[in-house]
Amino acid sequence: MQAALPKATGRVRRRRQRTRWFDWMTAPALIVLAVVVGYPIVDAVLVSFTNYSLYTPLHHYVGGVNYSHLSNDPVFWKSLQNTVIFTGVSVAVGLLLGLGLALALERLRGPWRFLRAILLTPWAVPVIVTAFLFEFMFTNPGGIINSLLETAGLIHSPLPWLTSPTWALTAVIIANVWMQAPFFLLIFTAALGGVPDEVIEAARIDRARTWSMIALIKLPYLRNAALVGALLMIIQNFNNFPLIWAMTTGGPAYGTSTLVIYVYQLAFTSFKLGYASAVGVVWLVLLMIITSLFIRTLRSRPA
């Protein structure tokens, strides 16, 4: 045992040497991250305490004025509220739709499996294309959605899909759900493939019915996939800019303005970089909370 020790120590030392050398390999990536992520964040925090506007070359420190203005800014609170509704409803409906589709398509065999591939295509369509597609479909007059609803006798006059704040938010959420339900379909299909055959067989021997099989056997196996998928989509939807901007530009009357839209408007159409940075910092903090929740969930996930 004692004789083996020096040999082992030498191996460990060599491994450590290699590891140290390997650690240095991360330096370029860390430098890049510091430049493209770290520096802008630090700079945004600093700018949020100034009255920086792109119009004027001079700007100065104004303390917490931007943050106190934020607390009294109705557009900020409206945007925050819209962000929560847009994200929450999109993820919840997308998840349920994806789950339903995954369960319905689970038993597809042979050429019918092609159907699953077709259902995944909305996920591959560029966001901007989806946005214009749905804008044309919802537009009034002339949109196909109102036309179909009228033909089916569900409505008697066209709905103001993109011209009423409530309906506009609904229209944007529908487009978003169409785009991201396939993502949930994909992860649930993969998770369903991981349910052990013996468990399914045992349930069948016990004459479990379809609903019991889904609720008591399959859903517990899908819990982790649902959690990871939902958290990823929450982060993605929190940052969803192109879909909303292309469909409604945040209107009408701030009806679909989310935090990311508001930051863009402040920074790039009103050029108020100081105030935009303050909104951006709040937005960043919220995203960091969600991200840390995501990382903690991943770490605590059982193998």
């Binding site: 119009y55 103001p160 011209t163 704040p165 209107g251 009408p252 159409t269 009103s270």
Partner: peptide, 17 residues
């Protein structure tokens, strides 16, 4: 540039609300 969004929000409000 600073005010156009709020003026237009008012105009849109007048039209739809």
């Amino acid at each position: 540039s600073a005010a156009y969004a709020d003026v237009m929000a008012g105009i849109q409000n007048a039209m739809i609300s």
